[in-house]
Amino acid sequence: MTAPPSGLRPDYPVRTERLLLRPLTIDDVDALLAYRSLPDVCRYVPFGPMTRDEIVRRLSTMWANTGLTDDGQALTLGVEIAGTGRLIGDVVLFWRSRVHRGGEIGYVVHPDVGGNGYATEAAYALLGLGFDHLGLHRIVARIDERNEPSARLARRLGMRQEARLVRNEFFKGEWSTELDFAMLAEEWAAYRAGGTPAPPGGR
């Protein structure tokens, strides 16, 4: 077994084919408000429509991290279109366990750019940060079953659906069913090399 991860300090911006992933700043308030205030965007995620004041508070607290130094922390990065400089969404990498080398990802983008593959491209880069740079063994994504676009995205990333937890959580006034997706480091390596996830390794 390899040593537990020691931390993550990306070189910013993290570049993909079309996107830049970078820390959020106070200059992003209007762009964040444009999608995080929309009820449809927030319907199946663990936050409600946000106000400007709430976004400003988060920018100075939970979104202020530019790296991960210990488990229990989260790294939230803005997703910017490289060619235009427009912030269209954000992604988050949670470091869940140092001992078990576990993490979790989340993603949200403005609905007016949906269907262009931006969320998939950004989430793919986030998996790279988790596996290749932080040294995680396993990364999960937990998704409300009704959020079909998010579930399709997880499958496009090569993540396996491991569980369907029926009506397991009273969420925003009603019972919700959770889909749990996961990927192991060896599956990530195979997917990145050939686009097809390897079968789980049993370790």
Rank of each mutant, 00 (worst) to 15 (best):
M1Q: 09
T2D: 11
A3L: 10
P4W: 11
Y12R: 06
R15W: 04
T16R: 00
L20Q: 05
R22E: 11
L24P: 02
T25K: 04
D30E: 06
L32G: 01
L33N: 03
A34L: 05
A34V: 13
R36Y: 10
R36S: 10
R36C: 12
P39N: 12
P39S: 12
D40E: 14
V41P: 04
C42D: 04
R43G: 09
V45S: 00
W63C: 00
N65C: 11
N65F: 11
T66E: 04
T69R: 11
T69Y: 08
D71Q: 03
G72C: 08
T76I: 07
R86I: 12
L87Q: 03
W95C: 00
V99Q: 08
G106A: 01
H110R: 07
D112E: 15
Y118P: 01
A122C: 12
Y124W: 15
L126N: 04
L134P: 01
G135C: 03
I143V: 15
P149F: 07
S150A: 14
R152P: 05
L153W: 02
L157E: 01
G158T: 00
R160D: 07
R164T: 12
E174P: 04
L179S: 08
L179Q: 12
L179M: 14
L184R: 05
A185R: 09
A189D: 13
A189E: 14
A190V: 05
T196A: 13
P197T: 01
G202N: 06
